[in-house]
Each structure stands twice: as C-alpha cells, then as structure tokens.
C-alpha cells in the first residue's frame, strides 16, 4: 500500500512559496493500477515523484507498507528505490549503452557482478517485453515503442513491487500506445505489481486503470473506481476529460437535444447488463417508444459498459424507468 498522509508540496520561487500540491491524503492499494489524470501543470509529475522521493514533500508523510519513506536516511532510501521501478515519457535510456546493458544497469547498481547471472536476468526481461533480438542494438536504432519496452524491462529488473509510469505513452502513436498499455496490464496481472501512472489522456485511464484521481491545479478534485468516475463525472475538469474520450453526443450535451420531442434519458450499462436485451424487454412491456440519439458500447479495462442517450415517448415512461433501474441499469434524465 502506498499511503499519502496530509502531504503537500510547494516550490520556492523568488522568495515566495508557490504551492504545487495542496494538502491531500490518498491510499493506493497493492496490485491495483492507479491513474492520476490532469492537465500539464496540475501537479501530476510532482505527485508521482513523491512516491520515490525524487521530489521531497514540503510536509506530511509518505508510507510504503510499514516503511515511512519520508523518514529514511539517504542510503535506506536508495535501497527502497530499487524496489520502485519507473518509466518515463522520453524513456531516459543510456544512449551510450546497448539495450542489454541498459536493462542490466539497475542490476549492476544493486551490486550484481556475475556476468552469467546478469545475462540470464536480462534475457528473461527482454523476452517478457518482446525485444530478444534487439539485445545488442543501441537505443537510437529503436522505435519509440521499442525504447519504452526497454524502459519497462529496465524498470522491472530488480523485481519491484511498484511501477511508476510518468506519461509513459504520451510520446507514442495510438497503436504503439495500445501495445505498451497492453504490456503494462499484462505485467500488472502476472507480476501482481502495483502500477501508478500519470497521464493527460482519459483513454489511457479507461484502458488500464482500476482507480483514478483527477488532479486540477494542485488538488485532487475527484477520485474513485474508473467506471464510476468515467460514467458519472462530478467535477467540471473530470467532465472535460471524459468528454475528450467520448463523442460529443454521448457526453450528453443537454442543449443538443432541446428541440427533440420526448424525454431525454441517458442509460448506463455496466458489466453483464451490457449484453442482455433489457431495453427491448422493458419497452415492449411498458409500451413506450424510443429512439437512440447517441450511444457507445466499449470496455473500461475488463468491464464492458454501454451508454445510450435516448428520447422516450408514451405514457409508460415512468414505469419503464423504474423497470430499467430494477434491472440494474443506471438512468439519468437529461431533459423532459
């Protein structure tokens, strides 16, 4: 468990304290993928760097399990850092070293000397990230996605329990982003590793995260399970992020449907409800009519979900809404 207790951080600029993160407390559970989303300057890179104390908090405590990181000596902190892997937006590989040597680097830093042992571990890691044939190349000979895979292999070298991802896919094209996210999800599943990632893309959160915190101007304005935050964003910043990931109509711009007759509803299906013909059954039973204004069926990580914006007509609408709610479908009325 990563635990922030009343942590805050400010930078001293020209004799004045500029707050980067206002006081907050937050728990990140073992084995989850935790996303932190925010615009640039919101404080997310500061927040992720607090976890391995690349940034020292101005106040508060940061705990890793029972270990209070903020109370450690330099030497014990370095030891702790070996159990926290980190990958970066710009990869930060050693340009003068081969792929294999880059991956071996943290092993050597941790005191590994036996070439055969190092080689075996490096081979294993490169196989995991699918770069076995590239062991003797230099980073400049690799594509962005391959470089990030080297970064991931390097981060995993000392078998960390936490992996920090600092905008790890922001410099990659959509396809490469998808494959790197898939690799992260696989690592999370198979190695039971806690992953903390920061991003400015809601789509990254939707694909891999279990929980998310939304950061706005140094404050966590909303946090919770991704499905809750994604389907029912509360804060304006969250809504903007969610809307970026959704087509405009699905996002439910009420003004869009002002001229549409009937009652405008948004139905959210989660999990198995997404696959059952509930809407058809309910409309048949209550005799209402409907037309679909917008919709989307997709997944939030492994959870199937659907979101439909409907205009519903007829005297049985209230009964229909009740029946839908009973069937586990979330119903919001946007306008009547």
């Amino acid at each position: 468990m990563i635990r922030f207790v009343d942590v805050h951080k400010s930078y001293r600029v020209d004799g004045k304290d500029i707050p980067a993160l206002h006081p907050f407390s937050l728990d990140i559970s073992d084995g989850e993928v935790f996303g932190i989303i925010g615009h640039s300057g919101a404080g997310k890179s500061t927040l992720i760097r607090l976890i391995n104390l690349l940034e020292r908090p101005s106040g508060g405590r940061i705990l890793l399990g029972d270990t209070e990181l903020t109370a450690l000596s330099e030497a014990s902190l370095r030891e702790q850092r070996r159990h926290i892997g980190m990958i970066f937006q710009h990869f930060n590989l050693l340009a003068s070293q081969t792929v294999a040597d880059n991956v071996a680097f943290p092993l050597r830093l941790a005191g590994a000397r036996e070439p055969a042992t190092i080689r075996a571990r490096v081979d294993e890691l490169l196989a995991r990230v699918g770069l076995t044939e590239h062991a003797d190349k230099y980073p400049s000979q690799l594509s962005g996605g391959q470089k990030q895979r080297v970064g991931i292999a390097r981060a995993l070298a000392n078998r960390p329990s936490i992996l920090l991802c600092d905008e790890a896919t922001s410099a990659l094209d959509p396809q490469t982003t998808a494959s790197v996210l898939e690799l992260l999800a696989e690592i999370n599943r198979e190695l039971k590793l806690t992953i903390v990632l920061i991003t400015h893309e809601m789509d990254v959160v939707r694909r891999v995260c279990d929980r998310v915190a939304v950061l706005d101007a140094g404050r966590i304005v909303e946090h919770g399970a991704v499905a809750d935050v994604f389907l029912h964003p509360q804060h304006a910043t969250t809504r903007r992020f969610v809307n970026e990931a959704l087509p405009e109509e699905v996002a439910g711009e009420q003004s869009l449907y002002q001229h549409v007759p009937g009652r405008i509803l948004r139905l959210s299906f989660r999990g198995e409800a997404t696959w059952s013909p509930t809407l058809g059954r309910v409309t048949r039973e209550t005799g209402v009519d409907f037309n679909i204004l917008a919709g989307r069926v997709d997944r939030i990580k492994d959870l199937p979900y659907g979101q439909l914006t409907l205009a519903m007509h007829g005297s049985g609408v209230d009964a229909a809404l009740q029946a839908l709610r009973q069937a586990g479908i979330e119903v919001e009325e946007l306008a009547r």
């Binding site: 680097f105 830093l109 390097r154």
Partner: peptide, 14 residues
C-alpha cells in the same frame, strides 16, 4: 539529458 540522471536516481544510484 537531465532525464537520464533522474532515471538513475530513481534506480537508487549513488
């Protein structure tokens, strides 16, 4: 690049 140094610090380098 500063990032390379930061990465090494994150790996626990002296």
């Amino acid at each position: 690049e500063h990032g390379v140094i930061e990465a090494s610090q994150a790996m626990g380098a002296t």
